[in-house]
């Protein structure tokens, strides 16, 4: 392989990696928010992402809506689902050991997967063409307009989230609850409401990711959330779990690592290499790339 073609491949792999990583980032944002506030690895998050994709599918394919309204509908419905799950399955366990909540989260995850398999059959579904995919070819590098949309959406959402958390009143409440739940309660913050709100926002983000991915890859099924959910969680940990820019960084890094490993080494060891690098990073920076020893929360 000569140098020019190597450079071109590297460029293309970076594009591939960043576009894949922005999807991980989008899911990881919600993951990291929920973790930041109640220290729960919400394994059901990947399945909310799947539900979001299905809500979007029904809005576009059955109700024949256009892209933006169906995205909003999917986000709203997922937000409600997230709040219901929190209310029914996690709130009663607020004072229980964290591992019990984790098992409940695994239960919720299985329930969502197989419940929806029962409802919508395991057959994959495809989105109608709701927004076009232009393909740009710049000096041999191929770029798809949907990739740009996904990257832009995740960047914007990250900025918005960061703003909400750091500069608004409800964001302040979220940070307070995350920092010290009991003190926040004493200060007159309705903790349940704040947690509920966090779940709503996190789930809406996952749904947005689900709809975008459904359109981009054009195939959704009830088990589609398992692997991206796991990878997004890894991404969130990589960046420093609980930190919003960390989720973005971790997601993109994960995507790039995967693309480079399968592009230049071996595609069979892609996941093994991704996990291996994650473990190495954790060994040298035990609280993630952007994590500090005293973690900044939410």
């Amino acid at each position: 392989m000569d140098f020019a073609s190597f450079l071109q491949q590297l460029g293309q792999q970076l594009i591939n990696g960043i576009s894949l990583g922005s999807i991980y980032a989008l899911i990881a944002l919600g993951y990291t928010m929920i973790y930041g506030i109640i220290r729960l690895i919400n394994f059901a998050h990947g399945d909310i992402y799947m539900l979001g994709a299905y809500f979007g599918y029904f809005a576009t394919a059955i109700l024949k809506m256009s892209f933006i309204p169906s995205l909003i509908i999917a986000m709203v419905l997922a937000a409600i689902t997230g709040m219901v799950i929190e209310r029914a399955a996690y709130r009663p366990l607020r004072s229980a050991p964290r591992i019990a909540v984790l098992i409940t989260a695994i239960g919720v995850s299985l329930f969502l997967e197989y419940g929806s398999m029962l409802l919508v059959t395991p057959q994959p579904r495809t989105f109608p063409a709701v927004f076009p995919a232009e393909i740009y070819n710049v000096g041999g590098l191929v770029l798809n307009s949907q990739q740009i949309v996904i990257l832009a959406v995740s960047l914007i959402l990250m900025l918005v989230l960061n703003y909400v958390v750091h500069y608004t009143k409800s964001g302040k409440a979220m940070r307070a609850v995350s920092y010290d739940t009991d003190a926040a309660k004493l200060m007159g913050i309705d903790v349940d409401k704040v947690i509920s709100f966090t779940f709503a926002v996190g789930s809406a983000l996952a749904a947005a990711a689900g709809v975008l991915v459904g359109i981009y890859y054009n195939s959704i099924d009830p088990l589609m959330g398992i692997m991206p959910g796991l990878k997004a969680f890894v991404a969130a940990v990589l960046g420093g779990i609980g930190i919003i820019p960390g989720a973005m960084l971790g997601g993109v890094l994960m995507g790039v690592i995967e693309a480079l490993v399968s592009g230049f080494f071996s595609s069979t060891f892609r996941d093994a290499a991704a996990f291996g690098i994650l473990i190495l990073i954790l060994l040298f920076r035990p609280s993630g790339l952007l994590g500090k020893n005293v973690r900044e929360k939410v």
């Binding site: 491949q9 293309q12 792999q13 591939n16 990696g17 576009s19 894949l20 999807i23 991915v213 890859y217 195939s219 088990l223 589609m224 398992i226 692997m227 991206p228 995967e258 693309a259 480079l260 399968s262 592009g263 230049f264 595609s267 069979t268 996941d271």
Partner: peptide, 17 residues
Amino acid sequence: EEAYLQKDTDFKATITK
């Protein structure tokens, strides 16, 4: 000779290779 895993969704890296 390349490989992917079931339920993968992004194949662009390997296809580029």
